[in-house]
Computed example of a mutant assay.
Amino acid sequence: MSYVTVEDTSFVDLSLLKILHLKSIISPKIDLSLLLYGCPNLEVLKVRRLDCETKGKFIILPKLVRVSIDGPLLSLETFKDVEVLKFDYVMPIFQPNLDLNFDFQNLVQLQLEVALDWLLVLKVLNHCPKLQSLVINIYKTLVRYYQTLNLPGYEEDVWPYPPIVPACISSHLKTFRLKDYSGSKDEFHFVRYMLENAKYLQTMKIRFDCGYVTMGTMKIRTLSQENDMKRELYSIKRSYTCTLSFE
């Protein structure tokens, strides 16, 4: 369902529905949880550009397996039993005080958008004990611009990571893909943490961003600069089973 206006979802009965894609739906007075409450057998949910009310209600969707969502429209606990989960929004911005009192017990594939808070990423991974595949999109366009202005709160801080490594990293993670890597201190520190602790990692792919911002101007990274970044990443100690490649 896409590009429509929904007036009322006070009564929804879609008990046979297994796949639901919502895109560009305008429904400012309707709670998404009420709509999904009428889809008890839903297995796949994809939400894009949904303009509706959300109260963060927890609803039970016992057969839900795969979710892709671009905003904090539902309680995260709604997705606790899924196997594949894709967040297309920057979690630190929308959920700065993320409190997880449950585990994603069945989750094997996860995609996140990340700005600055790598410790938040580890906090989430601590609750994904069986995770095997991780994709992280680095979203730092505005952050990098603010860094050029030397505004407080936008430094490339490198924080000490917790001494206990999330179980999924040390025991289960097989593939890790990092998109729009710029080589900043915080990014490199996180990559090093992952490579040094992911004992069963088989594949790590890194895609460089197209350039960087300085004095409000986008600069394209040179081939020589990219090669320097690759050498720095290759120097990190990693499991002998892990193949490091670049896109």
Rank of each mutant, 00 (worst) to 15 (best):
S2H: 06
Y3N: 12
Y3F: 10
V6P: 00
D8F: 13
V12S: 06
L14I: 01
I19Q: 12
L20A: 05
H21Y: 14
I25T: 03
K29T: 05
I30C: 15
D31M: 05
S33D: 11
L36C: 00
L36R: 12
L36H: 06
L36N: 03
N41F: 13
E43Q: 13
V47S: 14
R49I: 02
R49T: 02
L50M: 03
I59K: 06
I59L: 09
V65G: 01
V65P: 07
V65C: 04
V65D: 04
R66N: 11
R66F: 09
V67C: 12
V67A: 06
V67S: 09
I69K: 04
I69E: 13
L74H: 09
L76Y: 10
E77W: 05
K80S: 12
V82H: 06
E83Q: 05
V84K: 13
K86I: 01
K86N: 09
F87H: 02
F87T: 00
D88H: 08
D88Q: 04
Y89P: 00
V90C: 11
P92E: 15
P92Q: 09
I93D: 07
P96V: 01
D103E: 10
V108Y: 12
Q111K: 15
Q111F: 15
V114Q: 08
A115F: 12
A115W: 09
L119P: 08
K123V: 00
V124A: 11
P129L: 07
S133A: 02
V135K: 15
I136V: 03
I136A: 13
Y139C: 11
K140L: 14
V143L: 07
Q147S: 13
T148A: 06
L149G: 08
L149H: 12
Y154K: 11
E156D: 12
V158Q: 08
P160I: 01
P160D: 09
Y161T: 00
P163K: 00
P163D: 05
P163M: 00
V165T: 02
P166N: 03
P166C: 06
H172Q: 08
F176C: 12
D180S: 11
Y181L: 10
S184Y: 13
K185W: 14
F188Q: 07
F190C: 14
Y193Q: 06
N197L: 11
K199N: 06
M204Q: 04
R207P: 07
C210W: 08
G211F: 01
Y212R: 03
T217C: 10
M218V: 01
R221V: 01
E226P: 09
M229K: 05
M229Q: 12
E232A: 10
Y234A: 04
S235H: 05
S239T: 00
T243M: 14
S245M: 12
E247G: 03
